[in-house]
Design a binder for these strands. Structure first.
Length: 330
DNA sequence: TGAATTTGACCACC
DNA sequence: GGTGGTCAAATTCA
């Protein structure tokens, strides 16, 4: 899929009017809906968090084919980089890197995380969180089947944004057998950067929150939406393990359709947010505004963290086309 | 040619 | 000493 960021005032590039406008409107509404469902999504002091929803109207998505797919799917998978062979050996390498500097040494290695806030989520599409990230490392973690990828905010350099994240594929996410692989994403520190127009995050994108409803233990809800290339269409963090996280639901990757208990408490890093299945007034208005008679074109799905799909969402025609009313159990 | 990614080494913490 | 987080040169691609 190719995603074009619609310039503000430049109109959406969603295609032709009518159906296209509806589609754009739907994305907007989905973003607003997410805001309503996850009101406590912490906005950054500089307003970075607003990207979770407010920029939805600025979004412009061009389908790379029907249906909508995650941005990374359409981008060609890159295979950049390989370990260089240095003639001078490790010592020469360190010399060239300036590794002998005490200050430089102090800046390396494990850092204390005092005063930093962390949030942990589980998601099937770790790329879509509304921010742009630059990968700066990957590490094979002990006792983990898949390597962990390290990202920092792309504004870390020019705006000294402290936000970082690590993405690690869960061992239980097999990626086949009908279930997309899941990833544990740890967000470290809050964004202090101010998103530029060019870098403005489109819609949400992906948030997975576990539930602690006793009746449906170990479950998670996943809200995701197509958006611009947060990672500039770059490689999935899980690329090195030979997998591709896209949240795609297909015939080979079907979504079970049994109904589950969607009323639950959402858990983000131990903090549970209550989700009242009976919509609030704004939510009700939003729901009324949305045309749920038709499938929406944004990926919204609910999954269980134990690997099973517990929701009752229908991907009516194809991946990322679902009947959104089922999100609310109506 | 610049940007993004890879990847082994380095370093701090436990 | 083991492990995880970071650095930065090398590599690749648009």
């Amino acid at each position: 899929m190719q995603l074009n960021r619609g310039a503000v005032g430049g109109g959406h590039a969603c295609g032709t009017p009518d159906a296209t406008q509806l589609r754009c409107r739907e994305r907007e509404l989905v973003a607003q809906l997410h805001e309503l469902l996850f009101p406590s999504t912490p906005p950054s002091p500089a307003g970075g968090g607003a990207s979770w929803s407010s920029s939805a109207a600025e979004l412009s998505v061009e389908h790379c084919g029907s249906p909508v797919k995650a941005p990374t799917l359409c981008g060609r998978r890159r295979g950049r980089g390989s370990k260089r062979v240095r003639e001078g050996g490790p010592q020469e390498e360190q010399k060239q890197r300036g590794g002998s500097s005490a200050e430089t040494k102090a800046a390396r290695g494990r850092r204390k995380k005092e005063g930093t806030t962390t949030k942990t989520i589980v998601t099937t599409v770790p790329d879509f969180d509304g921010y742009q990230w630059k990968k700066y490392g990957q590490k094979q973690i002990e006792a983990a089947q898949y390597p962990r990828s390290y990202y920092r905010c792309t504004n870390s350099a020019d705006q000294a944004c402290p936000a970082k994240r690590t993405v690690q594929r869960n061992d239980d996410g097999d990626g086949d057998g009908g279930r997309p692989p899941k990833y544990t994403v740890v967000y470290i520190s809050e964004h202090s950067c101010k998103l530029t127009e060019a870098a403005a995050a489109p819609v949400i994108l992906e948030t997975t929150v576990g539930t602690k409803a006793p009746a449906a233990p170990d479950t998670a809800a996943v809200f995701s939406s197509s958006s611009s290339a947060f990672s500039n269409g770059t490689q999935s963090p899980a690329s090195s393990d030979g997998t591709w996280s896209d949240g795609t639901v297909s015939e080979a990757n079907p979504v079970p359709r049994e109904r589950g208990d969607c009323s639950s408490l959402f858990d983000v890093d131990g903090d549970y947010w209550e989700w009242d299945p009976s919509p609030t007034a704004p939510a009700a208005a939003l729901l009324q505004d949305m045309d749920f008679a038709r499938p929406i074109m944004s990926p919204v799905h609910i999954a269980a963290t134990d690997g099973s799909w517990i929701n009752d969402l229908f991907f009516n025609e194809s991946p990322f086309v679902l009947n959104s009313c089922q999100l609310f159990g109506y």
